[in-house]
Amino acid sequence: MRALAVLAFLLAFLPGLAGAVQPDEVLADPALESRAREISKGLRCLVCQNESIDESNATLARDLRLLVRERLVGGDSNAEVLDFVVQRYGDFVLLSPPVRPSTWLLWYGPFGLLLAGAIAAVFYLRAQRRPAAVAEPELTGEERRRIEALLADEDRNS
């Protein structure tokens, strides 16, 4: 689980794109600025449809970008900044929904599905390995040999 969380964290900031940040917003300290960018990318622009405040030209997005930077300069941690915004706008503002009972299905569903699928696949593969008594009863040994030969031939050709 811990490894998963680390992986999720590593991958969470993969989409690193930029857009609407105006020159006058940029912080002098590059480390703070890059944290601000990272936070902005995870916050949804509420008046837009599906954009982060980092990408949006909307006024509210700009206000929130400035707010994020102000709080960072004021010494907040990333989590504290996010918390500050969530208190005002709710979890809806987070592009990555928090893990809690109502989002367990979302966060663990994919891995649950993979597991279930893997179990089903294992059963299928085991069944496929041994000929069941009923499988292809209509084939005589001669036919089977012919098919195998043809298949082997096809294997070589394709």
Binding site: L46, V47, L60, D63, L67
Partner: peptide, 13 residues
């Protein structure tokens, strides 16, 4: 004027 109080209210529109 700067919209900060509105943000505290959670105003988005």
């Amino acid at each position: 004027a700067d919209g900060r109080a509105s943000i505290d209210w959670g105003v988005y529109g």
